[in-house]
Design a binder for these strands. Sequence first.
DNA 1: GTCTATAGCTAGATAGAC
DNA 2: GTCTATCTAGCTATAGAC
Lengths: 236, 236
Amino acid sequence: MFKRGTEKVKDAAKPAGERTRELIFERALELFRVRGFEETTMRDIARAAKVATGATYYYFPSKEAIVSAYYDRVQSLHAARVQEELSGKEGLRARLGMVMHTKLEILQNDRMFLGALFRYTGEPGHQLSVFGKGAEAQRKQSTELFRQALDGSEVSEELKQFLPWVLWLAHLGIILFFIHDESESQAKTRKLVDGVLDLLTTLLEFTNSTLVRPFVKPLERRLLGMLREAGWAEER
Amino acid sequence: MFKRGTEKVKDAAKPAGERTRELIFERALELFRVRGFEETTMRDIARAAKVATGATYYYFPSKEAIVSAYYDRVQSLHAARVQEELSGKEGLRARLGMVMHTKLEILQNDRMFLGALFRYTGEPGHQLSVFGKGAEAQRKQSTELFRQALDGSEVSEELKQFLPWVLWLAHLGIILFFIHDESESQAKTRKLVDGVLDLLTTLLEFTNSTLVRPFVKPLERRLLGMLREAGWAEER
DNA sequence: GTCTATAGCTAGATAGAC
DNA sequence: GTCTATCTAGCTATAGAC
């Protein structure tokens, strides 16, 4: 696993370009946190990183792209965190709760500029649209975490096929709520997450009870069929 | 009902300013439809309406504000349409279907620039955020339509208190889906709407059945309490 | 209050030289 | 890969006509 021959001893693994990129990236995030996304200009970022504005655009095609890169990092932090904590955790409620709450913990200090992630939600063609082509890999990775959280729980085959996707969608909604939540430490969002999960697990148990199962089963089938037609419950 | 004294015979009801405003408005929408929102500049709009750029800003504080004004008109068209068709319509399923589908009909030709409505979704303070202060009146008006559609149907008191809000939220999601839907005449969106409504009415009937009602009732209570804490199920 | 004309600011984004 | 110069477009400001 060696990089090709001409390695420097100092910062061996990282070519100069990579270091510049990270410098710009970190300075940008600092500014976003202090001043907000809108109020921070690309010129500010370049100045803070001691490079020309052109250099910033060399690494990030737009200001939003920086936030997008930030979100990539969030995802990978989150994935690591989930892998780590999921192994010991028993019970669907606790597992899902962990996934949701760790995500919020990671985002906690950056609510100010998270809104930029949603800017192109309504523009299908855009590279940075949450529902667009450009975010496909991210969506897949994120739904995968929810799928893992479902592992080992007694959930029907039908549900297993679309529940991760629904949870991902719900988690997007929660992040939006989180952004708008001005309560102390975003306690309202935490309560909402717990409430939703409590309700969900109660419902799942309910649908698994022999009393209503025969009735619920065809409903799950219909729901699955519907979501498939809509192009969900399987990213291609 | 007379305007104050000095009325002109020609275009009696409309002062000159109102006509200019409408001219700018209509020209802008034409350009948005043909070229798209992003590609249309304020200078283009002014030129097309044969006014100075300043005049455009005199009537609309921003480019997005034009789309926002467009959406105001959509709402009022929709409200009129719903009033008209709701009176004769029986049955919850049919009534809700009408509300949803008429909305989509009104939006049908303008999918190209609807995305601009969602641009500030993640920015709480912004005047044009869907969930912000500035859209409160619009939200109220829109949820009111869903409330009316529920009139006369057998829905529990608990559900009546938050179902309109949930339906409004779902309808936002549907519009997003609609924007991204490239199927012929957006047939997929139509199917999704029907599927969701079929499922919803099935579920409502189910929850009303004497078999499960005792179990479902407390769940509805919990859900209502949860949504209230989150600040919903009653705009203020 | 309703506009024109014009000039200028700001900041995102790009082109091309080195 | 990095810089300087430049472009573009949203937006503001102003002064004046009606």
